[in-house]
Design a protein around this nucleic acid. Structure first.
Length: 218
DNA sequence: CTCCCGATAT
DNA sequence: ATATCAGGAG
């Protein structure tokens, strides 16, 4: 929590906003249920892979009852290529049953309720709340947000919940959702996990982790 | 902390 | 062959 590193935040965020105006989610969905399902499936997978699976899945499973009553091994096959398919199938079915039994069959729109669904923690809940219901409950911290927030010096914490808290203090509440999406886009396009392309980064001169030694000074 | 796990890029 | 991907549960 050193003030020197955090001081770059306003400039970095302004430049990233200019680089990614109107960032949009990559997952395809038409309603809160589809968003919830796609986000549960997205764990440790790519959105390209998830969209490939959900384009068929959403034709077959149209309501929470379709998931609740599904044959579990059939559901596992239907989501197989997303990875972690046993856990995810179980989570989808059990979440659907909780939604039916405790929430009147409607995907809940409160953080407290979403966290009662198996397979849903803060990252997934934040996405569903922000994009599904327009509720600003927090900032979705996924692997990209975690990596970039650390590299850019926005946090020194490693626990996603603590990182989220740090970010919520830095970012204006109205920009929470855009902030997540922007960091994800920049992480996918430039600030790669393995070999960040600092030479192509619009904020490399402000980044404490920039690999380019020339532009780090001044 | 470990485990879950397939698809893709390097 | 290994690292990584809109993570979460036990």
């Amino acid at each position: 929590m050193t003030a020197s590193k955090l001081s770059n935040f306003p400039q970095i965020w302004e430049l990233l906003k200019k680089e990614y105006p109107d960032p949009q989610p990559a997952l395809h969905f038409k309603n809160p249920l589809e968003l919830l399902v796609a986000t549960i499936l997205s764990a440790q997978s790519t959105d390209v892979q998830i969209n490939k699976v959900t384009s068929e899945l959403f034709k077959k499973y149209r309501s929470v009852f379709d998931y609740a009553d599904a044959d579990i091994s059939e559901l596992e096959k239907d989501i197989y290529s997303t990875g972690f398919y046993r856990n995810k199938a179980k989570h989808l079915q059990q979440s659907a049953r909780v939604i039916i039994e405790d929430f009147g069959g409607e995907v809940p729109s409160k953080m407290e309720d979403l966290l009662k669904l198996p397979g849903v923690a803060r990252k997934t809940a934040n996405i569903v709340l922000a994009r599904g219901f327009g509720v600003k409950a927090g900032i979705a911290v996924d692997t990209h947000v975690k990596r970039l927030a650390t590299r850019l010096g926005f946090t020194e914490n490693k626990d996603p919940v603590k990182i989220e808290k740090d970010l919520m203090e830095l970012v204006d509440r109205n920009e929470w959702d855009d902030f997540s999406l922007t960091l994800i886009l920049h992480g996918r396009n430039v600030c790669f996990a393995r070999k960040p392309a600092c030479g192509q980064c619009v904020v490399h001169h402000l980044c404490p982790s920039s690999i380019n030694p020339i532009s780090k000074q001044l």
